[in-house]
Design a protein around this nucleic acid. Sequence first.
DNA 1: CCGAGATCGTACCGATCGGTTCGATCTTGG
DNA 2: CCAAGATCGAACCGATCGGTACGATCTCGG
Lengths: 197, 197
Amino acid sequence: MPVPKGSTIDPSRTRAAILETATPVLYERGLDGIGVAELCARLGVSKETLYRHFGTKDGLVQAVLEARSERVTRWLTEAVTAAGQDHADQLTAVFDALQRWYDDPVFRGCAMLNAAAQHHVETVRAITARHLDGYLELLTGIARRAGAADPQALGRQWLMLVEGATVVAAHHDATGAGEHARRAALALLPTTVGPQD
Amino acid sequence: MPVPKGSTIDPSRTRAAILETATPVLYERGLDGIGVAELCARLGVSKETLYRHFGTKDGLVQAVLEARSERVTRWLTEAVTAAGQDHADQLTAVFDALQRWYDDPVFRGCAMLNAAAQHHVETVRAITARHLDGYLELLTGIARRAGAADPQALGRQWLMLVEGATVVAAHHDATGAGEHARRAALALLPTTVGPQD
DNA sequence: CCGAGATCGTACCGATCGGTTCGATCTTGG
DNA sequence: CCAAGATCGAACCGATCGGTACGATCTCGG
């Protein structure tokens, strides 16, 4: 029971608890795969509380997606930072982190892509686009620091490998998807920079 | 009006007409984005007819997805065949065809991936997996004929580029997505074989 | 020319959907 | 100790969902 009756008194605490618990449920079941009633039951929260905090089911969905996008991007960024200065190491850190995600039993593909595929609401699609923006920025940064002739282009190709690996892992075969993508990404690194695989 | 009342008398004709008309509608609106009633109205067909031919909405969905998967895979395969013997040309043909698809105003990403993202039914996921199997087979064939050391691995990396490019084109930016993916794919070709870009 | 059967249009079914309302309960600040 | 307000649980709302039933209409093979 994440929200113990009216004990919290702090609304922002309740909101955060709802957000945190709703995220994995909506990810597992799909945005339209669970109704508000069952969702509230799983959250241990009444409908009135949910609607006061988020106004609409779509409001909750957007809040969940935005929080998740931020969290995932931060997680990947930290993996890169922890990898040190070597650009190949940074790239490897990205795809190793992704592979760890693919191997998680609850892995069901990118939540933002799934959401955009089912919900045709424009705001959801915008969140997904911004999410990919974040990825692109991270990857382009690596490409730029690696001295790529065209960091934008290389970052975009890496983004395709990241998303492609995620799609393949989710819908075809997860074994070694991250490693295959990593090798491909490293092969695109300017050969003048750093040792390769 | 694709099905002119009871004039056809040939049930298989009716079935084919429903399939053909339902495909773009379900692609545009999403599988759960349109109800059976409105769908039938758009098809110019009564509910009874639809249910006699497909039994269930899921039955129609599966038939539509299978037909579309076959059609798309055949389309890509023919593009490769038409490209001649050169492996780089064959690869280029794939990504050029994809770019033409991305530029189509009705492009909304891969229908099979979208379906698998919304519908958690196992049969739909299976159709998607088989669809990716078809792509992988096509790409692995090119890799093998190109003399790749590990055609399976190279085919899989190309598959990631194909799916990644499609995802990026659908949810981020379609301009030049096919070209970027094509350059990356060509860069992964064994340098001993054929001229590159 | 008649009977089989494909189709239509519409009404209908129970279930579920997102969302609202309300009285009761609980916690906390003043 | 009381008023403010956050929360609960359950009832309730109209709309829509997937699916069924039925009588009328149409076409075609025999």
